[in-house]
């Protein structure tokens, strides 16, 4: 599975406008709703919040991967957002998060969900890639980076 199979320009927002964690989650959920990928945005927001309450998905080094297994999506879905100034996402290293990958999967797609999360995890290990991603100015530039 390629991340490019999951993400289109309308699922990417650069820059994100929110300054607080909950607002940012809502903003990214709204991106997916605007792209026609989800229906019940409130249920999806709550599912992500519930997961965040169990432990932040702010991994550190400016990266966060909020995710949830939810009924409100028919297929694996991903949004990417970049907040150049960063926001407090309660990350483990205490640093602000700047790059966000939101991944939602229906309950019966566990295999694909794990595959997508693994691929994002591998990508985020490349400091050079993450630097380039952080400096993207618009969704098209983000997609270009994934195509390289």
């Amino acid at each position: 599975m390629s991340i490019l199979e999951l993400v289109t320009e309308d699922c990417i927002k650069v820059p994100l406008e929110s300054k607080r964690k909950n607002d940012l989650i809502r903003e990214m959920v709204a991106v997916l709703e605007g792209a026609g990928k989800i229906n019940d945005s409130e249920a999806i927001y709550q599912a992500i919040r519930t997961r965040e309450d169990q432990g932040s998905t702010g991994l550190g080094e400016g990266i966060a991967i909020p995710h949830a297994k939810v009924e409100g999506v028919s297929e694996l879905t991903m949004a990417i957002g970049i907040s150049p100034d960063g926001i407090d996402f309660e990350s483990l290293d205490g640093q602000d998060a700047k790059v966000f990958f939101m991944i939602l999967a229906p309950p019966d797609k566990a295999g694909q969900h794990i595959q997508a999360l693994s691929e994002v995890a591998k990508i985020t290990r490349s400091a050079a890639f993450m630097r380039a991603l952080l400096h993207s100015q618009n969704p098209a530039e983000v997609l270009e980076l994934f195509q390289e």
Binding site: L59, H67, Q115, L117, S118, A121
Partner: peptide, 14 residues
């Protein structure tokens, strides 16, 4: 794919 599951825990995603 328990390898992937373990990796996701190690990288603190899970």
């Amino acid at each position: 794919n328990t390898r992937a599951l373990n990796d996701l825990v190690k990288s603190r995603i899970f």
